[in-house]
Nucleic acid binder design. Structure first.
Lengths: 126, 126
DNA sequence: CGGAATCCAATACGATACTG
DNA sequence: CAGTATCGTATTGGATTCCG
């Protein structure tokens, strides 16, 4: 295992070279690219909540446009977080579902959620 | 405690109302706003590594410009992650240091780091 | 229904120069 | 040294319309 439970990115960076430091930043930026942006999380949560059809997802997320939804769903599919299934019915219908892999994001979302909660209190005052 | 060790943002969203779901998304976006972007992490790591002076930080981060560094340092100061100290020497010098509060980001950065590492392997293949 | 096409606004980021 | 000013580019998100 490359990282023990007690190690962390910053302590690594304090102790090692600049190029190793880059090796820490890169995975973090990879992860951020997948979940940051205005719509990724709302979409993940909408699909997770049982909204499977394109219009269904669209209606469940206030102020999103079809263009943005279309693009973000493609991104999420590329990252194997969302599965797109086309059914040959009349008319054809498309279903979006989360992959099992999407569950691996839970630890990340939890960490962000917890930190964000206390940070809001800290910055805005109690 | 509002969140137990076994709960997480997505399971909450599956089980509760839309407005409660928003309450989960907001803190996550708060957290993301603080650390996302191209330069936040490199700057945090540079300061954490002992680079305290403006030019020092600037030189330690390839391709960053003074304009961007200036703006990002202000943001980080606003979020109480970085402390700016002006010394009345001749000429005046300015020192940037991480606050103790910045250490609370470790859990977030760790989660992102771990997930990012395995995700890169998953997407690019071994 | 499930999008794609087009056009537009806002923001992030970059290059270069300059100041106290 | 520690920034600011100005300008330009690039990416992102939004509004609207259209299509099979």
């Amino acid at each position: 295992m490359e990282l023990t439970a007690t190690s962390n990115a910053r302590s690594i960076c304090r102790e090692t070279s600049h190029t190793d430091c880059q090796k820490v930043i890169m995975p973090v930026r990879d992860a951020l690219d997948v979940i940051s942006g205005k719509w990724k999380l709302p979409i993940i949560i909408a699909v997770s909540s049982g909204h499977k059809r394109f219009r269904d997802i669209e209606r469940s997320i206030p102020r999103i446009t079809s263009k943005v939804l279309s693009k973000e769903l493609k991104d999420l599919e590329t990252h194997k977080l969302v599965k797109r299934t086309v059914y040959d019915s009349q008319p054809v219908s498309v279903e979006y579902t989360l992959t099992p892999y999407a569950d691996t994001l839970n630890s990340v979302i939890d960490a962000l959620h917890r930190w964000g909660l206390q940070h809001r209190k800290k910055i805005l005052g109690r």
